[in-house]
């Protein structure tokens, strides 16, 4: 009994340390850097990258694909005009991980069998360079 309460006390202390450990100043600095940028967003002419994250997508490997898009978009400095979002089952589970790209005034592009590596190429060539990576699209699947 004594040992139990001693343990939970240690845990509590640890948690308190854990929270203060990483300087909250770092987070506050991000806020200062970001708050002006965020307000500049118009919501128009925006590109949306949508990753299917239902059971079918997750089990096919959508989590690293999503995180690769989030990281690459930020790394390339595209966060102002590109958003990465998640959605449920798109209905073509056999082609998961599936990623849809919506651009203003353009037809939707559907990428299939995605991987984190392919995501990097899509950001580089399509999102940044404006050229669809045709070989990863659903239209390129051989029946």
């Amino acid at each position: 009994m004594l040992e139990c309460s001693g343990k939970s006390e240690r845990k509590k202390q640890y948690l308190e340390r854990g929270i203060s450990m990483k300087s909250l100043q770092e987070l506050a600095a991000i806020r200062e850097r970001m708050k002006d940028k965020v307000s500049l967003r118009s919501g128009e002419n925006e590109t949306r990258i949508v990753v299917g994250m239902a059971t079918c997508g997750i089990s096919a490997g959508a989590r690293p694909v999503l995180n690769a898009f989030v990281e690459e978009v930020a790394k390339e400095g595209l966060s102002d005009k590109v958003t990465v979002t998640q959605t449920g089952c798109i209905g073509i589970c056999q082609y998961e991980p599936v990623v849809e790209v919506f651009e203003a005034d353009k037809e939707k592009v559907t990428y299939v069998y995605m991987t984190a590596e392919k995501a990097k190429r899509v950001v580089e060539e399509h999102i940044k360079g404006g050229k669809v990576v045709t070989e990863y699209t659903i239209g390129n699947i051989k029946a």
Binding site: I30, R31, R33, M34, K35, V38, S39, V70, E71, V73, A74, S79
Partner: peptide, 8 residues
């Protein structure tokens, strides 16, 4: 001002 989904 800053959403939690911000990459940073």
């Amino acid at each position: 001002d800053v959403p939690l989904s911000n990459a940073e």
